[in-house]
Computed example of a mutant assay.
Amino acid sequence: MAFSLLLVALIIGHLLADFYWQPMSWVNDRNSRHFKATKLYFHVLVHGVTSAIIISAWEYTYGWQQISSVVIATAVIMLSHYAIDIAKSYSSKGVVPFLLDQLAHIAVIIYLSVWLSDNTHFLDTLYSLVTNPNVLWVVCGYLIILSPSAVFIRMMLERLTGNFSSKGSLVLAGQSIGMLERVLMLSFILLDQFAGVGFLLAAKSVFRFGDLSASKDKKLTEYVMLGTLLSVSVTLFVGLMVKYLIH
């Protein structure tokens, strides 16, 4: 319980300091001036103060009540946050750098939580989870329904419909919607919530009905139907295979 409490408290502190207590002007200053940005040092200080308060309260209640542990952990959080944010400021502004940035911060927090609480059980649990064949089959299923399935569905549509494409839509929007759709469907299947699959298809049909009715284009209707049915078929097959291999 002590480890979980420290971990979730530090994560909440990180979220507050990184997203709620950091004005956009600080972010812009860091991205434009990098290590010369004064606001970056304010941001790191906010993280340091927040973390120090959390760690001090936890150390006094559950830890060894050593001020040195508080100082070391706070310093690690501040220095690592500074280094990670500087690296991000030189990267391209996109989803991948954002995710890597947040994962790096969370990894530091997990490491410090394990060290402060001396919780080796967490590492053992994490190792057993990573080496669990059932978990790996689930990961494999999600990997299959993302990019490989998108390639397969695109090839099948090209074969069945020629070079027909839906004009006027956002670039890669259809592929992204399809991926999200398959992720949700696979999640419902693995959780034995097949009603969720039906709800998802019904919701998609409602949103698509207006577009298809307005277009009066039979080829577009057939294209959308083929894409949806292929996506559902692939996800059902992968989901049922994963469930079979797990059990």
Rank of each mutant, 00 (worst) to 15 (best):
L40N: 00
L40E: 04
Y41P: 11
Y41E: 08
H43A: 10
V44L: 14
L45K: 01
V46S: 13
V46P: 10
H47L: 14
H47F: 14
H47S: 11
H47W: 13
H47E: 14
G48Y: 07
V49I: 15
V49P: 04
V49R: 03
V49A: 09
V49K: 03
T50A: 10
T50S: 08
A52F: 07
A52P: 04
A52K: 00
A52S: 07
A52L: 08
I53L: 11
I54T: 06
I54N: 00
I54K: 03
I55T: 02
S56R: 05
A57F: 11
A57C: 12
E59I: 02
Y60P: 06
Y60D: 06
T61P: 08
T61I: 15
T61M: 15
T61L: 15
Y62K: 11
Y62M: 12
Y62Q: 11
G63Q: 04
W64M: 15
W64R: 15
Q65V: 09
Q65N: 13
I67P: 00
I67N: 10
S68T: 05
S68I: 06
S68E: 07
S69Y: 12
V70N: 00
V70K: 01
T74W: 01
A75G: 15
A75C: 14
A75V: 12
V76H: 02
V76W: 02
I77T: 00
I77G: 00
M78E: 00
M78F: 01
M78L: 07
L79K: 09
L79F: 10
L79D: 04
S80K: 13
S80Q: 11
H81W: 02
H81L: 08
Y82D: 06
A83M: 12
I84F: 09
I84S: 03
